[in-house]
Design a protein around this nucleic acid. Structure first.
Lengths: 146, 146
DNA sequence: ATATGAAGTGGGAAAAAGTGGGAAATCGGT
DNA sequence: ACCGATTTCCCACTTTTTCCCACTTCATAT
């Protein structure tokens, strides 16, 4: 299972170490896409096969005739990248994906059960604060037995 | 699968490098047609065979009138070009196709699963911004498995 | 405390990709 | 058939990417 938080450097060549604990599960080849919120998603090739199938299942073979389907596919596929993890466990994040989430210097790499997310370190810090508050409220509710 | 975004130069001889990652899948010969939206479509010969069959097949429900279908086909077929990719991986984009989408200097080349789109760089930038918001909503739906 | 090994980071060299331009071949018009 | 113009083919340069090696840091165990 993919869990935990890691802060890694993104170097001048757009490389980031995949946390060693994730490497086995992710395999040699991964798919990086824009995520929901200010982050990227990393899928295994198997997961991506499912996702892209789901996208195409709802379509006819002539999906490009429908305007909104066109836009959506353009967005999803056009901004995805198939990436090989190098011999010492680094991935290369294309610049067009970095731009979308203002990634630079430090990346937060988060395991979320069966997917991995990549955040700008600062954005992740803020996200955590936000989530922490929600968690506290949830905990209080639980404590009051609601 | 054809995915990702690449910005390439279109030179004085109307040549554009096909992104190296696309070359194997596209093969030596491709079909370039006017696209829908401000772009061109590129299909493999195999994919084009499917598409053109579907378009001309009267059995297919394209949900528009015969007359419309005729003029649509005239548009797609009449302006489609069969193009050979040269020995070092460049394609030649006919001028009549460039004019339609105001292509010059820089082209954005986008992989959209099993077709490739070619955009004027600037138009692509605007398209991305426009679609980003609605695509996220659609993606959320998808993520919730609706 | 020190040695050992694994993980992460940085950088140089080799290879590949992208770009530009000249020469040969082809085409069209006279 | 000849000439000029356009297209095609090939070569060469530049930039980017990839591959590999080496150093540093952190954690673990002795």
């Amino acid at each position: 299972m993919l869990i935990g938080e890691y802060i890694h450097t993104i170097d001048e060549k757009n490389r980031v170490s995949v946390p060693a604990k994730f490497r086995k599960e992710l395999g040699k080849k991964i798919i990086i896409t824009p995520g929901l919120g200010q982050c990227l998603f990393i899928f295994t090739t198997a997961e991506w096969a499912k996702v892209s199938k789901k996208l195409s299942d709802s379509e006819t073979d002539l999906s490009f005739l429908k305007a909104d389907q066109r836009s959506f596919n353009r967005y999803m596929f056009g901004r995805a990248a198939e990436v090989e993890i190098d011999s010492i466990g680094r991935m290369l994040i294309p610049e067009f994906l970095q731009e979308g989430i203002h990634l630079r210097d430090k990346a937060a790499i988060i395991g979320v059960k069966d997917r991995v997310e990549v955040w700008n370190e600062k954005a992740w810090g803020e996200q955590k604060v936000k989530v922490a508050k929600e968690a506290e409220q949830l905990a209080e509710k639980l404590a009051r037995n609601e």
